[in-house]
Design a protein around this nucleic acid. Sequence first.
RNA 1: CGGGAUGUAGCGCAGUCUGGUAGCGCACACGGCUGGGGGUCGUGUGGUCGGAGGUUCGAAUCCUCUCAUCCCGACCA
Length: 438
Amino acid sequence: MRYSQYFLPTLKENPKEAEIVSHQLMLRAGLIRQTSSGIYAWLPLGYKILKKIMDIVREEQDATGANEMLMPTIQSADLWKESGRYDAYGKEMLRITDRHDREMLFGPTNEEMITDIFKSYIQSYKDLPCNLYHIQWKFRDEIRPRFGVMRGREFLMKDAYSFDMNPDDARYSYQKYFLSYLRTFDRLGVKAIPMKADTGPIGGDLSHEFIILAETGESGVFVDKQWMEQDFTGRSIEYADREGLGKYFDKITDIYAATDEKHDEENCPLAKDQLIEARGIEVGHIFYFGTKYSEPFGAKVTDKDGNLVTLEMGSYGIGVSRVMAAVIEASHDENGIIWPESIAPFDVAVINLKTGDAACDAFCDNLYKTLQKNGKDVLYDDRDIRAGNKFADIDLIGVPWQIIVGPRGVAAGMVEIKNRKTGEKQEAAKDKILDVIG
RNA sequence: CGGGAUGUAGCGCAGUCUGGUAGCGCACACGGCUGGGGGUCGUGUGGUCGGAGGUUCGAAUCCUCUCAUCCCGACCA
């Protein structure tokens, strides 16, 4: 992409409504634009990143054997009356009526709808287990939206639903998602620690929150040092290895991690020097809630012996749009965002320091094409502005690698390569660039 | 919903108390000097002063109502 042709409106100053750094940087880097309180338009660069996060989430969901689908944003109130949550959800649910005065709502989640859909097709134990998910916009009419997309009213969520014959199978499904979440957040370039959680209005008796550690996080957390020192992505575990997965789950959930609400200083099993106090942002939440929805919806199948069995269910959410803000909270400096390579909007930026100079232009055009041919997604800053502006913008939007091309270098066949994260700069010959940036 | 605040150019703000030609910085356009970390000089463009009503010869400024946004609290992917 040529910067001169890209809609990428960056801001030099912080808009006054933005309080926390991720919100400030998302506005300044031209990722989002607020259209109402807690509701945002995703500008081209922001949407590009959002899609990258979605892709990783999707790949890791698919790896568990889950089926992707897409359910509507608007739901009938009737479904929610059946589960009893139409009243229980309160004002947080955005209720609307259509032209026939039918009661509708903008879905805050999809347990009711998925249960209703699923039960009408499935009658036999042979069809189980089954996992379904979608990535769709949700709306929760927060009392007070704040912190940009961190606590918006409209947000993008991946929500998955598991259906099993019995509690034991359902726990296995839960553990699969648990592992997939560890892997997902690892690929997103952040440390997300699972912590035992309340089940809230979703209901159920087994639940974990996945919390990204970030200095500016909303809640205080207390975790065992081990979390910081080790890799807990269980790479060697196969989802099909039920026993191995169960053992791994037990091992991981045994390592202390608690939010400040659950942490009890007096009864904490850890020695002080083994405990880390930090702050975190909740980006995922998984629940096993049994028959809470299958019961009222009559979602049953026939087992081997011909008996009707009510389905055991769980649901599994990742706040896709929130993850973006959380990553920024966890990864930025005074100059801007530092994207992990996996979700960076571009792999590399080519900065032409002297647009209009025939030698520089030719060199950069050629480099731009060569990098693209080698599979790199390149942002080529071909704008006719001062060098300082380009450095500031590229740092702000956080592209992992910068290739800086100036007249002096071109004459010598050399470029400067800067790593955004470390700040390290090195000279490299043109044909060695790919060796450096990988 | 309770408490606090703010709405003036795309962004950040002054002007409001004490009514009298709507300003500054950045950004933007054009020109000059510049040219490896948001440079500089000059000339310009851009405003229903959130909205409605009222007081007044005259309202960004005073009064009433209203809308929006933000912060603190209770709730949450």
